[in-house]
Amino acid sequence: MPFFIISRILSTLTVVFGVVTLIFLLIHLVPGDPVQAMLGETATPTDLEALRKALGLDQPLLTQWWNYMTNLLQGDLGTSLYSKEPIIDILIERFPATLELAAAGLLVAILIALPLGSIAALRKDSIYDNSAMMFSLLGVSIPNFWLGPLLILLFSLTLGWFPVSGRENLLSLVLPAITLGTALSAILARMIRSTLLEVLNEDYIRTARAKGLRESAVVIHHALRNASLPIITILGLQLGTLLGGAVITEIIFAWPGIGQMTIESIQRRDYPVVQACILLISLSYVLVNTFTDILYGWLDPRVRYSV
């Protein structure tokens, strides 16, 4: 197990190294002069030079990269061009809101997918199964930037049950969480159904039934427990969709998280903040995946011995 964990962490480190490098290079993709783009047409040459120096853009690319890496390791992400705040403070202020939204979205996804997928598997080819799979197809096909406004129209503007936007109380979390979690719930329900269908054909399920166990005990203790492994992997992989979707969801509901900050900073051409936001979301995703891998190896010894 220690060897497995170390090998996972090492491969994560190389990925992190690549991700940071790629994000560092982003600012060099700005068409024309990035400094000019950030300051706008009215900037004086003195201003341009000052910012170029402050961002280190006057130095050779390799030196810039080295500085970016070393500053990052010291927790220094630079300052925002717009608010003049240290970027790390902005991230610390904004990140909890995104985490809260992602956690709520995940909860919604599991709450919908678990019963939907399990019953679909248990009643295979029934009307229930067919409609659950139709829901699943609809769920992956409906864009969250359309679902969100529709939910607002129905539940906020017409019925007045939930606030239209913002982050005041638990009620304001409901619609964003549904918007974010629906796509994942659809994917998850499908996965749960197909994994359960495989497991339900195993010998130990027949044994459990032959012992005279209640059907609920067979399903919960014998089938779902064994089906949980592939489901955890899928969940880890799909968290990326959730985090990416959070950016759009935050914009729809004016949710004050990292995603909203990303888009606002793009509009203000505050590129250092854009880089930092993208970095934070990607690194969270990489960390979750590594954690899922390790968890999987811990739950299933076959995985860790094959490395």
Binding site: S11, T14, V15, V16, G18, V19, L22, I23, L26, I27, L29, V30, P31, L239, G240, T241, L242, L243, G244, G245, V247, I248, T262, I263, I266, Y271, V274, I278, I281, S282, Y285, V286, N289
Partner: peptide, 24 residues
């Protein structure tokens, strides 16, 4: 394979948002 891993490390639409945000 390592390079592919790096691209896969960006969640969903995020890299596209970053690129088109920067490129205009």
């Amino acid at each position: 394979v390592r390079i592919m891993d790096v691209f896969l490390a960006f969640p969903g639409i995020l890299l596209a948002i970053a690129l088109s945000g920067i490129l205009g």
